[in-house]
Nucleic acid binder design. Structure first.
Length: 281
DNA sequence: CACCATGTTCCTTG
DNA sequence: CCAAGGAACATGGT
């Protein structure tokens, strides 16, 4: 479920829901997600600690905790299939619950089908993240400077978390389409007008996705096969909201919404890219 | 059986 | 140092 907009919307829900709650029990069912820490270390650090807030950095969730006078941070990442939500303590745990924090009447659950995500006290990964694409530092001057210094295909660059923290495979394709930029173009060979449009499209795509996620009914737990949240239009709890949300992602063979040319799928750096060969050149 | 999947990290090669 | 490519991680959908 995770790119910057999804994480942002999740954080906005979790922060007020967790603030002030004290962690009484810690159940680790998949120690792998704690890497590099161990279950014992996590239990020792979290027991008795109180949530003071939740923030976001890139695709990471930052849980601010306090015990006594000591403040510290717990860092979460959802990988490809992670979810985080609260549910009544008596309800059965989902099959792939990786970590469960008992908060009294409620459990805070981190579940992750593929266990690619993380929940850990080690925050060092944050040091290597680039600027927030919706933040001040990610201005046109920074953007153009980065473009001029890289020969990488632009699509690959958008996925580089030290270029901008939080853009993922879906919104990379969407932003390039909105800006009419061909995904294989080397950064330094982008024309100025393409750069300006892309810079703007990145912010627009992320901003609109956040706004969209803030207005639809959300099912954090997910209702089944397709993700009940953002990416797919099949979730019953959001039917009617999804039309024309993602313009090119996962639409290979379908007509481009601008020109009816068939959307193409290519592979770059091992990931699918979707684009319109006519609009994006 | 095949291939695909919202992400990151590690390894090898150049 | 950088970049590119591939594999690994692990499970499920089509």
């Amino acid at each position: 479920m995770p790119e910057l907009p999804e994480v942002e919307v999740l954080v906005r829900h979790l922060s007020p829901a967790l603030r002030g709650k004290t962690i009484r029990t810690i159940t680790v069912r998949r120690a792998r997600v704690l890497r590099p820490a161990t279950a014992h270390e996590l239990v020792r650090a979290l027991r008795g600690a109180k949530f003071t807030g939740v923030r976001r950095r890139g695709k990471y969730l930052l849980f601010a905790l306090q015990r006594g006078r000591k403040s510290f941070m717990l860092l979460g990442h959802l990988g490809m299939t992670g979810r985080m939500f609260l549910q009544p303590a008596r309800e059965p745990l989902p099959k792939h619950a990786a970590v469960v924090l008992g908060l009294g009447r409620q459990n805070f659950i981190y579940e992750d089908t593929r266990y690619f995500g993380r929940l850990t006290l080690d925050t060092r990964v944050l040091d290597s993240l680039g600027p927030e694409p919706l933040g001040r530092k990610f201005g046109l001057p920074y953007f153009c400077e980065e473009m001029s210094r890289s020969a990488q295909p632009i699509k690959t660059k958008l996925l580089d978390q030290k270029f901008a923290a939080g853009i993922g495979n879906i919104y990379a394709s969407e932003a390039l389409f909105l800006a009419s930029v061909p995904p294989r173009r080397g950064c330094k060979w982008l024309r100025f007008d393409q750069g300006v449009r892309l810079h703007r499209a990145i912010r627009l795509v992320l901003y609109q996705a956040i706004r969209y996620g803030s207005t639809i009914p959300l099912n954090w737990r997910g209702s089944g096969k397709r993700d009940g949240l953002f990416y797919y239009g099949t979730a019953p709890e959001a039917s009617g909201f999804y039309e024309e949300r993602l313009l090119v992602y996962d639409r290979a063979g379908q007509p481009c919404p601008n020109c009816q040319t068939l959307i193409r799928r290519i592979v770059q750096a091992g990931r699918s890219t979707y684009y319109c060969p006519k609009c994006q050149r």
